[in-house]
Amino acid sequence: MDRNQIGKWLRSPQKMSNKYSLHAVYFCTGCGIIEIPPSITTRWDAERFGIIPAPNPRQANLFLITGYVSLKTLKAIIRTYEQMLEPKYTVGFGSCPINGGMYWDSYNTIKKLDKYIPIDGWIAGCMPRPEAIFVAVTHLWTLIEKDMATGYIKYRKNYKQYRANQEKIYGSLDWPPLYK
């Protein structure tokens, strides 16, 4: 961990601060959320690494999608994701967001979340342990370090396609497009 290397801070304060100030949206999509409380409290203490749950998406830059994504939840996920400020990072937590997991043939869950919003990294497993979150975070640090956590840029670039995918499910969305 290079948190106290002042030289790095002076060279790229943005990157460094993004790394060590990951505030997560406290958003409960599915059963995966059960792993969050232990990870932020005494046992694993995520605050050591500057990770705390943020009260709302405007103040957060990390989006953990914890568990299966139903059609109804997806709408909220898209909305929340769009309201987060750039740069922002998303991590799919558990196998359900990756491929539907045990809901692989359910009629109202999303199988591939990254069709709708960009995902910077995945934590596989059902369910992953809190340690996995920390592993994911260190990977995310690396990605940020190497300018590879660019999901939000991808989203902006391919917004038309994402929007089309979103609209395919819902017909039309309540809100106007984020980008022109």
């Binding site: 405007r58 709408k75 909220a76 996920i77 909305r79 309201q83 969305l173 309540d174 809100w175």
Partner: peptide
């Protein structure tokens, strides 16, 4: 004013 935090809904 409509782009506003409302717990994920429009």
């Amino acid at each position: 004013q409509y782009d506003n935090y409302a717990a994920g809904s429009f």
